[in-house]
């Protein structure tokens, strides 16, 4: 028998909608440029920066800064622990769907104001 859904089954860091969208996009692609990710999610520079920083601090996202033809290029990718956290979050969602309802997760970190 499957165990009931507990509040800590939902990772508070990726429960926030923009952060969940960032993790989902990076789960589908090995790496995405900052501009490309911003366009795919329809968020502002500041919003994406702040949430990406929260994910980076949690160790879920790796950010690399390089230069392409003298232009700065920021790329984001999911770390191993980020991918595992995303899998756990999906499993928790699946259990809520199967069991009908689950507890609300604890509030996660808010992005720092810019």
């Amino acid at each position: 028998m499957k165990h009931p859904v507990r509040p800590d089954d939902f990772d508070a860091v990726i429960h926030e909608r923009v952060r969940l969208a960032i993790v989902a996009a990076l789960a589908a692609r090995p790496q995405m440029g900052f501009t490309e990710l911003k366009a795919a999610l329809g968020v502002t520079d500041g919003n994406l920066s702040a949430h990406a920083r929260a994910l980076e601090e949690a160790g879920y996202v790796a950010v690399s800064k390089t230069f392409h033809e003298r232009r700065p290029h920021t790329a984001l990718s999911l770390t191993r622990s980020g991918r595992a956290a995303f899998q756990r979050y999906l499993q928790a969602l699946r259990r809520v769907v199967e069991q009908g309802a689950g507890p609300d997760p604890e509030p996660g970190p808010s992005p720092a104001p810019r």
Partner: peptide, 25 residues
């Protein structure tokens, strides 16, 4: 979390993953 919210989140995850893999150039 209610079942409907979980379903909505799963649908949103699918949408984002599809959008991220689009060829847009």
């Amino acid at each position: 979390m209610e079942r409907e919210e979980a379903l909505a989140r799963i649908a949103e995850i699918q949408r984002v993953m599809e959008r991220a893999t689009r060829y847009t150039l």
